[in-house]
């Protein structure tokens, strides 16, 4: 496995990028401005693209350069642009109803990191690779998963829910670049494409929500119960 025989410089670069993207998901968690989410998401995607390129360089996987370019373009530019367009059209710029204050959700998020770290330790030890970089990759992957779910459950604006989903997948992307850089390229490309389709679908759906429900706050969606 690549992560087990990295030179120290590469390992520290990978760690730095992983930690920085985790922090960016906390930026999303702590803010109530939708544009901040979006910028943080864009930055996170660029970091992941950078990570792909570096893994490609240090691990000699030339196809990862392609993935890096595609990630930067699709997730770093095109997706944020699509979401930004939806934001402009809807004229919503912040979460109005929050079930938990941003500060509280940050604390919960910190708890999620600790939880993820414990799980990651156990897995890394069981697999027999207790190196820092493996533990870190697993931690960041699980943390971003948990933070994504947290965002999905405490945010009501439709756009924040889309971004929550995207954070879920960013986490998996980041972790898989470090843990399984050899994963067939085709799969990653199709998953990227799939995300694009997903966001396009979300865009259409949000417009319908606006048209037929009259709001994009999912708090309004409470007709169907039981």
């Amino acid at each position: 496995m690549l992560a087990t025989h990295l030179d120290p410089l590469a390992a520290s670069w990978f760690s730095l990028i992983a930690i920085a993207s985790m922090l960016l998901s906390f930026v999303m968690l702590g803010s109530r401005w939708l544009k901040n989410y979006l910028y943080a998401f864009g930055a996170q995607s660029w970091l992941i693209a950078l990570l792909s390129a570096m893994v490609g360089y240090y691990g000699h996987y030339p196809e990862l350069y392609l993935i890096a370019v595609l990630t930067a373009f699709f997730r770093g530019l095109f997706l944020p642009y699509l979401v930004l367009r939806i934001l402009r059209r809807l004229r919503v710029d912040r979460e109005i109803h929050l079930s938990i204050r941003p500060s509280t959700s940050l604390v919960i998020g910190a708890g999620a990191v600790v939880f993820a770290l414990i799980i990651a330790y156990r897995i890394a030890n069981a697999v027999g690779f207790p190196q820092n970089i493996v533990v870190l990759a697993l931690t960041v992957m699980f943390t971003m998963k948990l933070v994504g779910f947290l965002m999905l459950s405490i945010r009501y604006e439709a756009i924040s829910q889309i971004l929550g989903l995207l954070v879920l997948e960013n986490g998996i992307f980041l972790g898989s670049q470090i843990l399984v850089p050899g994963m067939p390229t085709l799969i990653e490309m199709v998953i990227l494409f799939d995300l694009l389709v997903a966001v396009a679908c979300f865009g259409v759906l949000v417009r319908y929500l606006m048209l037929h429900v009259g709001s994009t706050s999912t708090l309004q969606l409470k007709k169907l119960v039981g």
């Binding site: 998963k145 999905l152 829910q161 994963m183 409470k222």
Partner: peptide, 26 residues
């Protein structure tokens, strides 16, 4: 309004759910 609500719930809950399957696959 009801069918839009159902569609939204469907895509959000299911996409979030199967992202766990992706994690498991990885």
């Amino acid at each position: 309004a009801e069918s839009m609500e159902a569609a939204w719930k469907y895509i959000i809950v299911v996409s979030a759910g199967i992202s766990l399957a992706l994690l498991g696959t990885v």
